[in-house]
């Protein structure tokens, strides 16, 4: 749930939107927010599944320390989504284990 009105912080106001894709679904994020925040606003909480027991993991510390919220972002695994800002056109996937990876041609 987005916090649009706040007794101390005031109104969030109109914020520029950014389109990102999470596991194939296009969602509208707000410019400047983290991937985690954009996902929470859509009630998406599973970031990855662990390698051995395939358990779900999501946001935990929110400041980039614990690495529980890592996902595959634009093909790169292990991206900490709580401290990575959304960018227009970003493709985000739930990470299975250590993820999959293919070298990009540059």
């Amino acid at each position: 749930m987005r916090v649009e009105k706040h007794p101390i912080l005031g109104d969030a106001g109109q914020r520029e939107t950014v389109n990102i894709t999470v596991d194939g679904r296009v969602i509208q994020a707000r410019k400047g927010e983290s991937i985690s925040a954009a996902m929470l606003a859509e009630k998406l909480r599973i970031c990855r599944h662990t390698t051995k027991s395939k358990e779900a993991r999501g946001l935990f510390c929110g400041i980039g320390q614990c690495t529980d919220c890592v996902m595959q972002v634009n093909g790169v695994p292990n991206v900490r989504t709580c401290i990575t800002e959304v960018q227009e056109g970003m493709t985000i996937c739930t990470q299975e284990g250590v993820g999959t990876w293919e070298a990009k041609d540059e």
Partner: peptide
């Protein structure tokens, strides 16, 4: 305790006061 939805107090604070999203309802 490792399930998505278990978060720290600091994470909750970051979400509501900086990101302006509630971590849950």
């Amino acid at each position: 305790c490792t399930k998505p939805g278990v978060i720290t107090g600091g994470a909750a604070q970051t979400m509501v006061n900086i990101q302006r999203v509630t971590p849950g309802e």
